[in-house]
Design a binder for these strands. Structure first.
Length: 674
DNA sequence: GGGATGAGATTTTTT
DNA sequence: ATCTCATCCC
């Protein structure tokens, strides 16, 4: 195994022995390369690939890493199939696999279905109504807030009371109601053989803690490697300790300067305290950037230096100088889009593919105007983050059918399916589902009497459910096809643009062929949802070129030759919704840093002066924005500043010079109070 | 009890 | 613009 492609520190990390290892890897310092070499090195030293567990933040990251491991090992016979044998995936995906294999040891039926966030919210909503919590003069938290609170308690391992005090003071008065709700929620999931995202981690933790089963699961692995460790939460850190109690064989990689998932209960303490948790741990810090030019690093180093709490580390680069980053002030959003498109096309002219360029933004809707403009000009793009394929109602409908077939006791899925029929709402759905839950199959429906409006479609539904839930039913694409046929008229009756929606479902039918079975398909779609319809259709071909649009969160770990960070106005970055506490502002700063540090050669930060608060309606309410607080003069000095159209700015956007009259009026108003 | 309608509040990031 | 909740009619 050759490690000479690495620099000294990378090599030290890759070839490190068994003791716990922390790799602090700044942006672009070759983290993936190092991790790939470490995995290859382990295999080369005789560790069997199937005894290596590689936990990444997204499945794509695991696949990419293992591809590189294969590349490194290609010479030796042992490595040939490494990518297929190493355990790779997110915490949640790995937990699903282990629980299906070993969950029965702790009384978990392996046929469980998984509720995603929206399903959890639906169930909480039903229970909130059932428990009559919405009664009373004080408004009970909405379902999304309830789900948020629940999830944070579980992932941060924090009692409800203190969590409410710190994060949700306005919900404190409902503490008892929330406790009751969460108790009921837990019981109901158990009855339905359903696990939510958090349960996957909780039950794996329980499995590992079990005196009989724990050693068996632990014994499967010799090495555990975790990427993006700065974005793990307390529960995940405990899970790792259960997996490697002494820390031997454990490698974690991350960068505290890029911790951006505290809203999901991630805590930067995990990476900061790793050496305390595992005494004798080796720490390796990577600071040489192989990505950005020194001129860009000069700017990004200054940005992150503003963080209140951090491990100081200056990134440096051996690359030649390069172009200074630009900060461009625009009149408004339209001009910002103009400018981005102009730059993007100019760079494409010079030979830089669209996919080497990315537009990044804080919130998903920040790209709406740009998307329209790109569409108008026929410039292909792919958007990552924000509303995704799986969140569309028609896709959720179809998957609810499949989940009900997989697990007839899944009441959330069942309610969704039955409510599609005319005349059936939550109450009747519940009455029809109860006997199915008791029986564990659809036979009770043969004799059921649905309301008259639903009666014509009923026999077809029952026949379909019985046929497709049978142990040796038809092939998966055929199943999806059958469901789609049944669903089509319901979809047309219910939604606008039904034809476009049904085309999406056709895509889903094609995609179904790639999965071994229905259970796998459901789990994989839930745990790693396709970002778009295009992505579901398959990986883009090589000659397929498109501009990347992405939320900053979804751009984590990626790099581009040129990046454009749009809407760099205070209120957007940092988000107005996250400026309450100093820690929140620090996280927004790290988020801005993540955005800026994606660039290899060219970086443009854009700031539109005029900002529409609401999607432009009649009259278009707007206000004038301030530049993000993260670019004070001392930091801006590392940027080239320019205004997109100075004359336009003078004309309407900067009414700062007061006339003598207004000064006089102000003085009078002032004197009024003295 | 289902479903349409309208008023009022809320609006980030995602496994 | 979208979600949530209350009201009213079938």
């Amino acid at each position: 195994m050759k490690l000479d492609a690495l620099d000294d520190r990378q090599r030290e990390a890759a070839a490190h022995g068994d003791e716990p290892l922390l790799i602090v890897a700044g942006a672009g310092t070759g983290k993936t390369t190092t991790l790939a070499h470490r995995v290859a090195h382990l295999i080369d030293r005789g560790v069997r690939p199937e005894r290596i567990l590689l936990v990444t933040f997204a499945r794509r990251a695991a696949a990419e890493l293992l591809r590189r491991v294969d590349g490194l090992l290609n010479g030796g016979a042992r490595g040939r199939a490494a990518s297929g044998r190493v355990w790779g995936g997110t915490f949640h995906a790995v937990a699903t696999r282990l629980l299906r294999l070993h969950g029965e040891h702790i009384g978990l039926h392996p046929g469980f279905t998984i509720h995603d966030r929206a399903d959890s919210e639906d169930l909480l909503d039903v229970l909130r109504a059932e428990l009559d919590l919405a009664r009373g003069d004080r408004r009970f938290p909405r379902k999304a807030t309830c789900a948020d609170i629940y999830s944070r308690c579980v992932n941060a391992r924090e009692p409800l009371g203190t969590l409410l005090d710190r994060g949700f003071p306005w919900c404190k008065e409902h503490e008892d109601g929330l406790k009751l709700l969460f108790r009921t929620y837990t019981d109901r999931k158990a009855e339905q053989n359903v696990l939510d995202f958090d349960d996957l981690l909780v039950f794996l933790d329980g499995l590992l803690a079990d005196p009989a089963a724990g050693p068996i699961v632990r014994g499967r692995f010799d090495a555990v490697l975790v990427d993006e460790y700065q974005d793990t939460n307390a529960l995940q850190a405990d899970l790792l300790e259960r997996l490697r109690p002494s820390g031997r064989g454990l490698t974690v990689v991350g960068d505290d300067a890029q911790a951006i998932y505290s809203f999901r209960a991630a805590t930067v303490r995990n990476i900061l305290d790793f050496p305390l948790r595992y005494p004798g741990a080796r720490s390796v810090v990577l600071t040489q950037s192989f990505r950005s030019t020194p001129t860009l690093l000069e700017a990004t180093n200054r940005v992150i230096a503003q963080a209140r709490e951090r491990h100081a580390k200056e990134l440096w680069s051996a690359r030649p100088g390069g172009e200074r980053p630009e900060l461009v002030t625009c009149r408004d959003e339209e001009q910002q889009s103009e400018l981005v498109i102009e730059r993007v096309l100019a760079r494409r002219e010079q030979g830089m593919d669209l996919r080497r360029q990315a537009v990044l933004f804080r919130a998903s809707h920040h790209s709406a105007q740009l998307e329209i403009e790109l569409g108008r000009r026929g410039i292909p793009f792919r958007k990552y983050g924000g509303l995704r394929f799986l969140e569309a109602a028609h896709v959720r409908d179809l998957l609810a059918f499949l989940r009900l077939l997989e697990n007839p006791r899944d009441l959330v899925a069942g309610t969704r399916v039955l409510s599609l029929l005319p005349g059936i709402g939550p109450h009747i759905a519940r009455a029809l589902l109860d006997p199915v839950v008791a029986h564990g199959g659809f036979a009770p429906w043969r004799a059921a009497r649905p309301p008259a409006a639903a009666a014509p479609r009923w026999p077809a539904l029952v026949a379909m459910c019985e046929e497709l839930s049978a142990p040796h039913g038809p092939a998966l694409p055929v199943q999806v096809h059958r469901v789609r046929d049944f669903y089509a008229p319901l979809c047309e009756a219910r939604y606008d643009h039904a034809d476009a929606r049904l085309r999406d479902l056709e895509q889903l039918e094609h995609a179904a062929a790639a999965f071994t079975d229905r259970s796998t398909m459901l789990a994989e779609l839930t745990l790693d949802p396709p970002q778009s319809t295009q992505e579901l259709a398959g990986p883009p071909s090589l000659d397929d070129d498109y501009l990347v649009l992405s939320t900053i969160h979804s751009a984590k770990g990626l790099e581009f030759d040129a990046t454009y960070v749009i809407h760099a106005a205070d209120g957007n970055i940092p988000s107005d919704l996250a400026t309450g506490r100093p820690e929140e502002i620090d996280e927004e700063l790290r988020l801005f840093y993540v955005a800026l540090s994606r660039a290899r050669d060219h970086l443009t930060v854009l700031f539109p002066l005029r900002w529409y608060d609401r999607p432009a309606g009649v009259g278009g309410k707007h206000s004038y924005a301030q530049l993000t607080r993260f670019l004070p003069p001392a930091v801006r000095a590392a940027f080239d500043e320019r205004a997109a159209a100075p004359e336009a700015l003078r004309a309407e956007a900067l009414p700062t010079v007061e006339s003598g009259v207004s000064a006089e009026i102000r003085k009078r108003m002032h004197d009024l109070w003295s």
